[in-house]
Structure formats: C-alpha cells, structure tokens
C-alpha cells in the first residue's frame, strides 16, 4: 500500500484537529478554578472531586450510558433485520413507501417526536421512566441503522448468496454466514450512530422521562438558565478519556488476538 503523501496527512490532521477542538476546550476549562468557561484562573481538580461526591450525577451518567448501549443494541437488531427485509421486497412502490416512512423520525424535530411519544405512552398507559426512555431511544435510532446498513446490502453481490445456496446452505446459514458478515461494517456503523443519537438526545428524553429517571442531556439543558457548572465539563472529560481508552484498548487486543489466531493456523 502506498504511503500517504504529506498533503494528505496534513489534511487528515486538520480534520481531526477541528473535530477534537471543542472537546479539548471543554477539558481544558474543567481544570479551571474560576468556575466558568471564560477566564482560566488556576489549575484545580476540584471539579473532578465534585463528580465523585455527587452520587445523583453518577447515577444519571450510568443511566445515560446504559440507555445508549441497550437502545443502540436493540435498534441495531431491529434496523438490520428491517434493512434486510426492505431490500427483499419486490414491489418498488412498497419499498419506497417503507423507506420514506423509515425517515420520518429523522426529519421530525425532536419536540414533535417527544410530544407525540408522550401522548402515545400516556394513551397506552406506560409508566414513564427507564422503560419509556429506552423504547423511545430505540424508536428514533432504528432509521439511522437502516440507512447505514442499506448501502452495504445494496452493493452485495447476489451471486454470493446463489453460490452459498448451490453449496447447500440453509436460509439460516445464508443469513448468518453470508449476509451478516458481509454487511457487518454497516451494522457497526449503525450501532455507533445510534449511540450518537441516544447520547445527544435531549428533547425526546425530556418528554418521555419521569419518576426520577434522568439522562445527562436533560440535566445539562435544564442547567442552562443558572449556568452550566464545570462539574459537567469534568464528567465529559472523564467520559471522553474512558471512551478513548476502551476503543484503543479494544482495537489492539482484538487485533492481537486475531493475528495470534491466524498465526496458529499456519
């Protein structure tokens, strides 16, 4: 493989610098003893200490991660199966209708989704709290998964499936051994985007939550009137650091175990 040219490298560095700039800005001020994101007075760790003292905030953080992971997982399953279903539909009109319906939640403003889900839940009599938030997050994450999986499915070569069938594979085998492995990059992309949707959502969660259940976003938005405390910066800094460590750690462990496995075959 050709090495990247200096220009290409510069370009990538620029993109990453922009993507991470606001995050480093937030983390920088989380060490500010001044109490706001304006003038940096002096270095302190007090905001990090405050995070660990505030058990309510920690519960909210854990709940946020729990809802994100779980809703991401469920939405990915429903969405992936849905996408496989959609491409198998022969009737073009039907297929386009489904795809349009799929996107309704992506285009609807959060307030509309939140308010209509709230009406829906109270109509059916669902108790507001963890369950209603989880279900809503699954609901608005499904379409993004479908949109991420679909292009992979569309470019998949049918001859693969035909070949598998000719070799005597069952329907199940075709799904598990041919289709899913091929579209797995799309599935992962869908899952990660679902996480993004879930972690960022404020309005929908606000409307459908209740009975003491809260997520970080709801908490942050409702702080705006009296000023967001740097404890939130500190908690974001921690979340960011842990996420990066997990991702990098997982990547290299995974890589190593894979190379060990392939090495063993030789």
């Amino acid at each position: 493989m050709k090495k990247l040219s200096a220009m290409s490298k510069m370009y990538l560095i620029f993109v990453f610098a922009v993507l991470y700039a606001p995050i480093f800005y937030l983390i920088f001020y989380s060490f500010n003893s001044g109490g706001s994101m304006n003038n940096f007075e002096s270095f302190t760790l007090e905001h990090y200490a405050a995070v660990f003292e505030d058990s309510r905030l920690i519960i909210i953080l854990l709940n946020t991660v729990l809802v994100a992971l779980l809703s991401g997982l469920i939405a990915t399953i429903i969405g992936t199966l849905g996408a496989i279903g959609i491409v198998s539909i022969k009737d073009k009109k039907m297929r386009n209708t489904l795809l349009s319906l799929n996107n309704v939640l992506i285009v609807s403003p959060d307030v509309v989704i939140g308010a209509s889900f709230l009406i829906l839940f109270t109509m059916i009599g669902v108790k507001l709290g963890f369950a209603s938030v989880l279900v809503s997050h699954v609901a608005f994450s499904v379409p993004i998964v479908v949109l991420m999986v679909l292009p992979k499915l569309l470019e998949m070569n049918t001859s693969l499936i035909d070949a598998a069938r000719d070799l005597g594979a069952t329907k199940r085998d075709v799904l598990m051994r041919v289709i899913l492995p091929y579209i797995s990059p799309g599935i992962f992309a869908g899952f990660f985007m679902a996480l993004t949707y879930s972690l960022d959502d404020f309005a929908v969660t606000f409307f459908v939550t209740g009975n003491g259940f809260s997520t970080l976003s709801v908490e942050i938005y409702s702080m705006a009137r009296a000023g967001i405390s740097l404890t939130i910066n500190a908690i974001s800094g921690l979340v960011f650091a842990v996420t990066v460590l997990i991702v990098i750690g997982y990547y290299f462990i995974n890589k190593r175990s894979k190379s060990v496995a392939t090495g063993g075959h030789r």
């Binding site: 709230l118 109270t122 507001l128 606000f206 409307f207 209740g210 409702s222 009137r225």
Partner: peptide
Amino acid sequence: TFDSNEAMLTKVQQGG
C-alpha cells in the same frame, strides 16, 4: 429538572 415553563406544563398535563 426542566428547561422551560411550557415543557414542564406539557409534562404535568399529560400526567404519567
């Protein structure tokens, strides 16, 4: 917590 009177009102109206 809530972030606007109107949003709070909607929640109280709907019960739940």
